[in-house]
Design a protein around this nucleic acid. Structure first.
Lengths: 237, 237
DNA sequence: ACCTGAACACCGTTCAAGT
DNA sequence: ACCTGAACACCGTTCAAGT
């Protein structure tokens, strides 16, 4: 019996960092964070696991690059209108990206190449300037907005991941959280319990924008610089 | 040759969920997130990996429980003074917990038992009420503060993790980020570049509190309900 | 009821060897 | 310069078997 060549088709295009990242995004979208493995990736690209390491440093690098590619694609497509509208648009874009690609949340905070965060910071910051915020207040304003956007995004990503794992759709998931909240101890958790009803029916995107608007109001109202010159925060590190 | 019993000392106390979680926290503090493995844990507890599964569902459960234990311990020790001061204290406590236990960040968003988040939400929410915020505005106010606190915490945790991995102390780390920012393209990243100097010398805790204060100002300034009754957010999901 | 530890089905990463 | 794929050193989790 003559030894036949294996039935795998050989890839015609050569490997590249871009093609590897593109395949990674697809794998992540299809099967979630667990779906991205060097074996699955190399099979999809008809190569060996080692080949990938010629183009990519390690798995963290790969995940960050995938995240950055997806974020960059969305952020770059946002039209600049009024500062406030643009900030809302940037924030909502990120929200929607994570809604479509829940795995983006986990790589977002990475500052290896400091890419995804810096892209968002820059967009937000330019609008802070356009808003006429004083130079010395821009850092605080941009920081607060960034942290808020990041916080909502992380929470949203976690929710989506969990819902996916449990095979729940949005309303089933909200119902489950709402039910858990309403069963909390009434003495210890009065506030959270009072939010249970609202949790079930709220609209994440609307609430997200409401938070942005709240922070924008804070940015517009002048800080009470009189109080004691500089607030001293006691250190307990 | 008589078969001697193996030289491992047998544990005298029986296993329990609590002792497993305590050992996990210690392992995480000592060696970071990679340090927590069922093998390392079972060796430390003088048992087999399988024994742990009698008390703990899986690794996610274990990580969440460790996170919740650490958060609960800190949160519970906060004295209630004025609403604003208490909110600042809760926020700073979480900040400091993550500074000491950077791994807390990764398990924080988990809502499996919905524990760590709910603890913080409740504390913050009670102070929102004490602040006299109208019932219908409490959700937005608490949500904005929570997202902000979470966002800063996640970012801080990521920074600490990265600094630890690279063996950098705080000022070396800030210098590295600052240097990276000042080398960004001047046309594309004017805002981020302008922040490079400030990045090098800023105090995270002070900035953190400044952001809290900014959001509190937003909470105090009334939302312009007039505008168009309810803001309609176009969906592009 | 609780524990043991071998075994299973995976991982990321390396590296000698090929083209 | 770039690719191959076996091998290494790990993982989390399961489960028959023990006490």
């Amino acid at each position: 019996m003559a030894k036949r060549p294996p039935a795998v088709q050989r890839r015609e295009e050569s490997l590249s960092r871009e093609s590897i990242i593109e395949a990674s995004i697809d794998l992540l979208d299809r099967n979630g964070e667990h779906g991205l493995t060097f074996r699955a990736l190399s099979e999809r690209l008809s190569t060996g696991p080692g080949a990938i390491y010629w183009h990519i440093a390690n798995k963290t690098d790969l995940l960050t690059a995938a995240c950055d590619t997806v974020v960059a694609r969305t952020i770059s497509g946002i039209a600049v209108t009024t500062p406030e509208e643009t900030i809302r648009a940037v924030a909502l874009s990120l929200f929607d990206v994570i809604d479509e690609h829940p795995w983006v949340g986990s790589a977002l905070t990475s500052i290896e190449g400091l890419s995804p965060i810096v892209r968002i910071l820059e967009r937000v910051g330019q609008q802070i300037r356009a808003l006429g915020v004083a130079d010395e207040d821009q850092w605080a304003a941009a920081g607060a907005l960034m942290a808020y956007i990041l916080g909502v995004s992380m929470q949203n990503a976690a929710n989506r991941q969990l819902a996916r794992t449990r095979g729940l759709n949005r309303s089933d998931f909200l119902a489950a959280v709402s039910a858990a909240w309403s069963q909390l101890n009434a003495k210890e958790y009065p506030f959270t319990r009072s939010l249970a009803g609202r949790m079930r029916h709220h609209d994440d995107r609307e609430d997200f924008v409401a938070g942005i608007d709240l922070i924008l109001r804070g940015i517009h109202s002048p800080p009470p610089r009189s109080r004691q010159q500089q607030k001293r925060v006691p250190r307990t590190r």
